[in-house]
Structures are given as C-alpha cells and as structure tokens.
Simulated assay, not measured.
Amino acid sequence: MSEFILALISAALINNLVLHQGLAIDPVLNVSKDCDRRRLHALGLATLTLLVVTCNLGRLIYLYALHPLQLEYLRLFVFLPLCVVLIEPLLGLLSRAVPTLPFNGLMPLLLSNVAVLGLTLQVTEGGYGALQTLAWSLGAGLGFWLALGLFADLLERSDNEAIAESFRGWPIALIGAGVMALAFLGFNGLFTS
C-alpha cells in the first residue's frame, strides 16, 4: 500500500504532467482568466477519468494482446485510437453522473491532450503492475487538475494594475508557470532520507 501512496504523490506532485514533463500544456493554456470554475473542474475530472481508464485499459491490451504476439512496436498505433474512442462515451457517462458540471465542449481539449497517450506509453514501457498503473494514472490526473486550477488562479490574479503593462497576459503567465514548475521541483526530495 505504501508503494501505491508513493506513486500517487510522485505522479501528482514530483512528476507532474504539466509542470515537469510538459505533456498536458495545450488544455492548460486554453484556460482563460474568465474561465468558469465549474468548467475548469469538469475538464479536470474528465481528464482524470480518461487517464485512469486509458492507462489501465492500454496496459491490459499491451500485456494480453501486443506482448504475447511480439507486436510491442505497435503500441502507438493501438493506444492513439484507444484514447480517441474513449472520449465520447466517457463524456456522456460523466455528464449523466455529475449533471452539475458542464462537460459539453470538452471534446477538443481532451483530443488535444497528449498526456493521455504519453502516460499510457510510459506505463507500458515501465512495466508497472496493476496497482502502480492505477496510482500513476490517478496521481497524474490529480496533478493535472491541480496545475489547471493553479494556472487559472495565476491568470485571474495577474490582471491588475500592480503588474507593468508589458508583462500582463502571456508574459506573466509564462513567468508564473516557470515559478510553479520550480516550486513543484521542491517536492523532489520529499521521500529521500
């Protein structure tokens, strides 16, 4: 159980998909300062669920179909359609399960999120077990959701008169993203003795 907790925290904070690996940049950059918080949480929940389902299903396909047939080199061509095919039913299921969040219009953001494909490839290449795969996908989804919320707060707070005109907008957002990435690197020595 301690390996599960360690992998969960590591995926969420230390190896964050957005701030450390740069995989899920596109959906985070599409967050505007006027973004509705409910839409932000809908995107975070949809990405979290998609990561968990795709990574675990991709691992099963790899272990029981590709690896026994020695077709490991086809991982990309199998996982990419898997990521795309799962989005529509997942959004429908989430909109029925959580009707208070607006899941409509999230399809393009989920399609452009390469974190789903990237993490699925990393999990199969790393040879993780079922529990570790669940922990990595859950932690990565929570870390994405955290980075999404932090970036939206940064954009909201950076629109004031205290910031010079030339730094408002994207320049201060990129500087803030760099500072957030450095802050998340501080968690790197969290589990060392």
Results as ranks from 00 to 15, higher is better:
residue 118 G to F: 05
residue 160 N to T: 08
residue 115 A to K: 02
residue 81 P to S: 08
residue 102 P to R: 15
residue 177 A to H: 04
residue 145 W to G: 01
residue 43 L to K: 06
residue 40 L to G: 06
residue 29 L to Y: 10
residue 155 L to Q: 14
residue 76 L to P: 00
residue 55 C to W: 06
residue 49 T to D: 02
residue 47 T to D: 04
residue 33 K to Y: 07
residue 113 N to C: 10
residue 132 Q to E: 15
residue 186 G to A: 15
residue 135 A to C: 09
residue 90 L to I: 13
residue 68 P to C: 12
residue 126 G to N: 09
residue 82 L to H: 07
residue 155 L to C: 06
residue 166 S to G: 03
residue 50 L to S: 12
residue 147 A to I: 06
residue 17 L to Q: 07
residue 112 S to W: 02
residue 27 P to W: 07
residue 140 A to W: 01
residue 115 A to L: 09
residue 96 R to G: 03
residue 103 F to Y: 11
residue 125 E to G: 07
residue 6 L to I: 08
residue 89 P to G: 08
residue 2 S to T: 12
residue 41 H to P: 00
residue 32 S to G: 14
residue 191 F to E: 01
residue 25 I to V: 15
residue 103 F to N: 01
residue 29 L to E: 13
residue 117 L to T: 05
residue 174 L to D: 02
residue 87 I to G: 01
residue 188 N to Y: 03
residue 160 N to G: 14
residue 123 V to Q: 03
residue 134 L to S: 09
residue 51 L to K: 02
residue 1 M to H: 14
residue 84 V to R: 01
residue 179 V to W: 08
residue 13 L to A: 12
residue 68 P to L: 07
residue 99 P to K: 11
residue 182 L to Y: 07
residue 22 G to D: 13
residue 169 G to S: 09
residue 179 V to I: 15
residue 151 F to I: 13
residue 145 W to C: 03
residue 32 S to D: 11
residue 51 L to C: 11
residue 32 S to R: 11
residue 115 A to T: 10
residue 189 G to R: 15
residue 87 I to Y: 01
residue 116 V to A: 03
residue 140 A to T: 11
residue 64 Y to D: 06
residue 157 R to Q: 06
residue 59 R to I: 01
residue 67 H to A: 12
residue 71 L to F: 11
residue 4 F to P: 00
residue 9 I to E: 06
residue 66 L to K: 06
residue 55 C to L: 08
residue 122 Q to H: 05
residue 20 H to S: 15
residue 118 G to L: 12
residue 98 V to H: 05
residue 127 G to I: 11
residue 124 T to K: 01
residue 70 Q to M: 10
residue 92 G to R: 10
residue 11 A to I: 11
residue 113 N to V: 12
residue 78 V to D: 00
residue 153 D to G: 13
residue 15 N to A: 09
residue 97 A to P: 00
residue 25 I to D: 03
residue 129 G to Q: 07
residue 15 N to W: 15
residue 57 L to H: 04
residue 111 L to Q: 10
residue 108 P to C: 14
residue 43 L to Y: 09
residue 62 Y to N: 05
residue 103 F to H: 02
residue 133 T to Q: 03
residue 58 G to D: 10
residue 118 G to H: 09
residue 160 N to V: 00
residue 111 L to N: 10
residue 38 R to G: 03
residue 9 I to R: 09
residue 93 L to N: 01
residue 152 A to R: 06
residue 99 P to V: 11
residue 136 W to L: 14
residue 83 C to Y: 02
residue 126 G to E: 05
residue 50 L to G: 02
residue 191 F to V: 02
residue 185 L to W: 06
residue 103 F to S: 03
residue 139 G to T: 08
residue 167 F to H: 05
residue 166 S to F: 08
residue 187 F to A: 14
residue 116 V to E: 00
residue 67 H to V: 07
residue 187 F to N: 02
residue 76 L to R: 03
residue 120 T to H: 04
residue 138 L to S: 14
residue 46 A to Q: 09
residue 54 T to E: 04
residue 129 G to Y: 05
residue 112 S to H: 02
residue 19 L to Q: 08
residue 63 L to H: 05
residue 69 L to F: 13
residue 78 V to A: 08
residue 30 N to E: 12
residue 161 E to H: 11
residue 3 E to Q: 13
residue 13 L to T: 08
residue 178 G to L: 12
